[in-house]
Design a protein around this nucleic acid. Sequence first.
DNA 1: GCCAACGTTGGC
DNA 2: GCCAACGTTGGC
Length: 155
Amino acid sequence: MKKHWLIKSEPDVFSFDQLWKVKKRTTPWDGVRNYQARNFLRDEMRVGDGILYYHSSCTPPGIAGLAEVASAAYPDPTQFDVEDPHHDPKSERSDPRWFAVDVRAVEKLPRFVTLDELRGRESLASLRVLQRGNRLSITPVTASEWRTVRSMGGL
DNA sequence: GCCAACGTTGGC
DNA sequence: GCCAACGTTGGC
């Protein structure tokens, strides 16, 4: 059973358009350093799962496009790289603490769906990204929420 | 830049 | 195990 997710990215760091332009429209989703997000990533994400690509810390925040999980989870290489800002000295190669998956852009939404629009939909009231204080960078989305956002985006 | 919310750390 | 201190996130 295909699952759906929402992942956050700051467009200044890595926008949906940038993902669209890289080779195979695919990039490692690494640097996740939150245990709850790590567990989703490692234990629940499957190749082919749908992803809402959310732009945060920008004006306006919102959903820019659709992506998909393009690999199984694998140990995040940045945790072992001393040069990398996400280096984790406490993580052992024999027992990696952090994981990554590859993410592939699938469809750019004809219309960017702003956070305000998402808030305006009764049927999206339980979307995690709308809850106050929500900081998780990877959250599950129901199939019906997925369809709603997709159609709001003009697909 | 502000600040509320939240996760993590570490002393006890 | 408690909890204060601290760092980060992210909308505004």
